[in-house]
Simulated assay, not measured.
Amino acid sequence: MILNRYFIMIKVGVVGYGTIGKRIVDASVDSGFDVAIAVRRYTPKLDIAIERKFPLYSMAGDIGIETQGDFEDFVRECDVVVDCTPKNIPAENFSYYKNVKVIVEGGEKHSLTGFSFSSFGNYEEGVNRERARVVSCNTTSLVRTLIPLKEYIDNVFVTLIRRSVDPWDVKGGPINAIVPVLKVPSHHGPDLNTVVPDISIRTMAVKVPTTLAHLHVVRVKLKKNMTKEDLKYIFENTPRIRVLSGYKSTADIIEHFRDLGRKRYDMPEVAVFEESINVESGKAYWIHVVHQESIVIPENIDCIKAMFGEKDKWKAIYETDKTLGIEKKKECYR
């Protein structure tokens, strides 16, 4: 059990036990929170939750397994609900969320909660909130890498090479195509601006037939001088960013985290290719990798802490990172 600074036990209710939901359950348990899970139907993925004896609740009557109650019972039992169901379903669930704090994920519209959260960008605005949206995997990576450079930034242009589906998904695609996002600029820049409105950013995106991770090619026009060494130093001393040398692909990067023995080979950090870091003619460049399955998990745990009154941003971030085993030296958290 974890106690916040006001010594109140927090019970986290996770709606959905898919890619994000199961990871938030694990991170919540590791953080010491009590947890409960609500699902619409039984799938074999739930067997692990059943084996671990997590309290399960049904959102749709009899789902063929033993449950502790219905969705209304679930909401009453929880202090905060993290809705990890597929896009647009959280909006359908909102009528149930009375007298409980709620977090939704980045696939939902900003207007659903009226507040989008990302730890580095606006942690303080999340303190004691009742509703929050944790921004998407791609936006999370941009907030983490751009906020430490904010004093240097004139404007930003990013090309996103997006993975097609998660590794487990056998129904999605493309299989043999590169699919451009034809709306230019893409939605990713405006999404960053829901957290940091004063960064000028434009983005374009394509989807490619890979499942491992997204990749961002970033160009920042500078308004203040910096060197390649300055940029590398900033990244190396910023939490939740890993600068990796000698790696040549997303496959290499993912294999590195497999070799580290990470659970599910998760990479909650942004991985920056060291060789891509450059500053030339008033512009900074780099390429980074985004593990879409796990990058938002630390921000969800931070958001819970903020909503329950933890005002110290860097204390919250450091404790989350330490719990997840991704912490850097303490002086990076400032």
Rank of each mutant, 00 (worst) to 15 (best):
D230H: 14
T203L: 04
D302C: 15
V289G: 00
D266E: 10
E299K: 03
I234K: 12
G246P: 10
V218C: 10
E274H: 04
D252A: 06
V289L: 04
S245G: 03
H288Q: 12
D259I: 06
Y265A: 13
G309R: 08
Y247L: 15
K228S: 09
I304E: 03
I253Q: 07
K221F: 06
V279T: 12
K305S: 12
D198A: 07
T227H: 07
S245Y: 15
L260N: 06
V218P: 00
E293K: 10
S276K: 05
L215I: 15
D312Q: 07
F308N: 09
Y247H: 02
E319K: 11
T227M: 09
E310R: 06
Y233C: 11
V272S: 04
V270P: 05
S281E: 14
A306T: 11
K248G: 12
G246C: 08
R240H: 14
I287G: 04
F257A: 03
I234H: 06
G246K: 11
I301Y: 08
K228P: 01
E236D: 12
W314T: 03
P197R: 03
Y265K: 12
R240G: 00
R264H: 12
F235L: 09
A213R: 01
L215R: 13
V208W: 12
M204A: 14
L212N: 07
E229A: 11
F273A: 09
K248V: 10
R242E: 15
Y285F: 15
M267G: 02
V296Y: 03
G246I: 09
K248H: 15
K223V: 04
T238C: 05
T323S: 11
M226Q: 12
A284Y: 00
K311S: 15
P239N: 10
